Amino acid sequence: MIGHYAAAFERDQGCTEAEWLAWLPGAVRGHALTLTASGGAARVDIDGGVLDLAWHPLPPRQIALVRLPRLAIGFRFTEVDEDARQRFMRYFDLYMQRGGG
């Protein structure tokens, strides 16, 4: 199904960790966001449930002479109903979209 978001999945994000951390508060759209003290993880409270995020740097993607930073991001929703998860992720992805068409 197009636009369906599973309860747990992983993806690459084309950004640095600093960019990710700068964008994350806006992408969670007012939901409570808690970053771990050790870094590389966060918790988002969503309608009585939780989204756990975990990330780590990947080797840059290289296209000819261009090197693009990448992060591996893990998403794990717990006790977030299907509708709330879909709404949250549609906004999250729209917010995180950069450039392109």
Rank of each mutant, 00 (worst) to 15 (best):
A27L: 07
V80F: 04
G101P: 10
A84C: 07
E82G: 01
V44D: 03
L53W: 10
R98Y: 11
Q62N: 08
R43D: 11
A54L: 07
A32N: 10
S38Q: 12
D93N: 12
A84K: 14
G40L: 05
G30Y: 08
I63V: 15
E10G: 12
R29H: 13
P57K: 03
A41N: 01
D81N: 14
G26L: 09
G101F: 13
L35I: 06
G99H: 14
A22I: 02
V80G: 03
G14S: 12
P59W: 00
E17H: 00
E10T: 11
L24M: 07
P69L: 10
E19Y: 03
T16H: 04
A27Y: 04
L58I: 03
M89K: 01
Y5R: 02
L71Y: 05
R98G: 01
V50R: 09
V66Y: 11
Q97V: 05
A7C: 03
A22E: 14
W20E: 03
G14A: 14
E82R: 13
R61V: 14
L24G: 05
L33H: 08
T78F: 00
G101M: 14
G3M: 08
A27Q: 06
E10P: 02
L58H: 00
T78M: 05
G48H: 08
P69R: 08
P59E: 14
D12R: 09
I46D: 02
G39H: 04
A27K: 06
M1A: 15
Y91V: 05
L35H: 05
R70G: 01
L53N: 06
D12K: 08
Q62H: 11
A8L: 05
I63Q: 15
F88Q: 05
W55A: 00
G30T: 11
G100W: 07
Q97I: 02
I73L: 14
P60D: 15
Y95G: 00
L68C: 06
A32E: 14
Q13W: 09
R70Y: 05
A27G: 08
